[in-house]
């Protein structure tokens, strides 16, 4: 019965159901917090699914855009008097514009060169956040205003709510929204060009696609996703450090994207879930966190080159046939 539904709708249904039933399995309200973090990372990852999975362009600097989003929410309310939600939008606009300006020269590059250029861009953003301590508090980080979700709802309905629970549903809706947009794109004229660029840039050009422009479009969209994720993280934690823009965070985002299966939105979310939840589960082995992360990255990329979900699907269908 499920196979009759278009894949786009099916993916959204599966995602909605998972978001709805997950809380039933939560042993404590602490898990709402982990769920929220998973959703926030998922949003950044969905953007990278569009860039890496659809268009085949790697970026090792997207944490930089998350940094811009986060610090927009940290700085704009105090310095410009903007409400937090508008600060999130401001951050997204700044990230999008920056991506648009630097994207054209950067995206002329391919493979390793593109990886290093984006890495350099992310590093520069992270350095500014670390060094301009009079604004950003430097490496120690800074406090962030509240989005006021819980207060707003409590005022409306006269109830007592836990912040992490409210955020869980808010971030869940945002993930669904992000996934909906990315899934819309997949089978659209624009999405088809992006996916064709993944396989052969030259062939895409010869059918009349302005490939440079489309790559730029994917870069800007993914930058906006990363920025919104960064803003949400800042507003959720009410505190932010420049670590959000670090190279390691960029690497984590890319790993999440490719881990689950870069071509698909659900795969990306699966990767984000795994890599966000795992360190929480491994806190006992805190010492081993890096060793584990490195091992997972290597093992999955060596033995499941397409990522977890596609490999799983292939194995299952092979079983079914056999």
């Amino acid at each position: 019965m499920l196979t009759r539904i278009p894949p786009r709708v099916r993916a959204l249904l599966i995602l909605s159901i998972l978001i709805l039933i997950a809380p039933m399995l939560f042993p404590s309200s602490f898990y709402y917090r982990i769920g929220t973090l998973i959703f926030i990372n998922s949003i950044a990852v969905i953007g990278l699914v569009i860039l890496i999975g659809y268009a085949g362009q790697i970026s090792l600097g997207h944490a930089g855009f998350s940094g811009i989003g986060a610090y927009a929410c940290a700085l704009a309310p105090t310095h410009l008097g903007l409400p937090p939600f508008l600060s999130l939008i401001l951050g997204a606009v700044i990230s999008g514009l920056l991506a648009w300006f630097v994207g054209r020269p950067i995206l002329r590059l391919k493979g390793h060169y593109l990886a290093v250029a984006t890495l350099g861009l992310g590093m520069l953003i992270s350095m500014v956040l670390n060094n301009e301590a009079q604004f950003t508090g430097g490496p120690d980080g800074m406090m962030v205003a509240s989005l006021g979700l819980t207060k707003g709802l409590e005022g409306l309905f006269d109830v007592n709510l836990k912040t992490s629970v409210v955020w869980y549903w808010f971030a869940g809706v945002m993930v669904l929204l992000g996934a909906w947009i990315a899934l819309n794109l997949y089978n659209s004229p624009t999405g088809r060009v992006l996916r064709s660029v993944h396989d052969s840039e030259i062939a895409a050009k010869t059918v009349g696609a302005d490939v440079a422009r489309y790559k730029l479009v994917a870069f800007v969209i993914s930058a906006v996703y990363a920025s919104i994720a960064g803003s949400m993280l800042a507003l959720f934690n009410r505190f932010i450090t420049p670590d959000i823009a670090s190279f390691l965070h960029s690497v984590e985002l890319v790993t999440m994207t490719v881990l689950g299966g870069a071509g698909s939105v659900l795969g990306g979310i699966a990767g984000a879930t795994l890599l966000t939840a795992l360190p929480q589960a491994l806190t006992v082995f805190h010492e081993y966190e890096h060793v584990m992360l490195g091992l997972i990255m290597m093992l999955v990329m060596i033995f499941m080159r397409d990522g977890l979900l596609p490999t799983l699907r292939k194995t299952l269908t092979r079983r079914a046939i056999a």
Binding site: R192, R195, H198, D199, A203, G263
Partner: peptide, 8 residues
């Protein structure tokens, strides 16, 4: 040398 969009 064929420039097909292999994954489509």
């Amino acid at each position: 040398n064929l420039q097909s969009f292999e994954q489509m």
